[in-house]
Design a binder for these strands. Structure first.
Lengths: 148, 148
DNA sequence: GCATATTACTTGCGTACGCAATTAATGTGT
DNA sequence: ACACATTAATTGCGTACGCAAGTAATATGC
């Protein structure tokens, strides 16, 4: 158990590093977005009102609140997201997905899906991919805000 | 297939982010090492002569060669690694694990193993962990230099 | 209802990283 | 053997990040 646990974790780190390289390159090439930005927008897309507070986004993306603030600035200028203050609580500044952002992220998601399919295209059965998705889902199941 | 592929990838990214946080904190607390440094040394430990060239390390760790150069400096000063020129090829400067480094990394690996076991301790059977390790191993199988 | 604690967000600062240019050494073609 | 390409490593530079401090607003305790 100890042995396979360690192996699983190390393989997971290794796999993530490879996939990040691959997805970063491909996403950056097609859209103007990096992988980080794409995940940022995807989290907004699946949120209740297509919006999240900055701290909430930070938790979901596992980055600091200051990074969320700074990431949002260029995307605001591009019109992908907008700042939306909360009338009830003046401290809150939601990041909300615009129509433009909606279109872009839908497109990015399609690219994402295509890339994901390619990863498993050779040497993987549908059942195996599903099994992997399930197991990784279990690994994340004791937390909030897992994406899609 | 497309659907579960996307889910698998997204879950993998999510899982990695959480595990990185957890392992970074715990490793940094026990030894003086960060997660990155621990993986750095673990790659050396399992290498043929406990040594690797900088470019080789960079490929295995999925970081740039310049980062390897810069990471090595403080670890050299701590005596964990040493610089070892190649007599055949004066361009090569191996990073080699010292005795001290060997001891530290063995210790770090034990901590790593303990943490990994904790991750799966609740709600996971040995078979499931093994299955996850296998599937992730498959995902990495078309590349060189996978760790342990 | 007022003082204090907590929360959301921003900003300054230091650090870590990748890219591209540089240097030095080895490989290749003729 | 010599010119040129390739490779390993380092360094300058710009960028992205986290942490901690600062600011403003809301929540809590008395």
């Amino acid at each position: 158990m100890t042995q396979s646990s360690l192996t699983a974790i190390l393989h997971l780190f290794q796999a993530q590093a490879r996939l990040e390289e691959r997805f970063s390159g491909a996403l950056g090439g097609v859209h103007g977005l990096g992988l980080k930005e794409a995940l940022f927008l995807m989290h907004l897309q699946q949120a209740p009102l297509r919006r999240l507070t900055r701290v909430d986004l930070a938790k979901r993306l596992h980055i600091s609140a200051s990074t969320v603030t700074r990431m949002a600035v260029p995307m605001e200028k591009l019109g992908l997201v907008a700042r939306q203050p909360d009338p009830r609580d003046a401290r809150l500044a939601y990041v909300v997905l615009t129509e433009t952002g909606q279109a872009i992220v839908t497109d990015a998601r399609a690219t994402f899906e295509r890339l994901a399919t390619e990863v498993f295209r050779d040497r993987w059965t549908e059942q195996e991919v599903g099994q992997l998705a399930d197991l990784l889902g279990r690994l994340n199941s004791n937390q909030i805000g897992v994406l899609a």
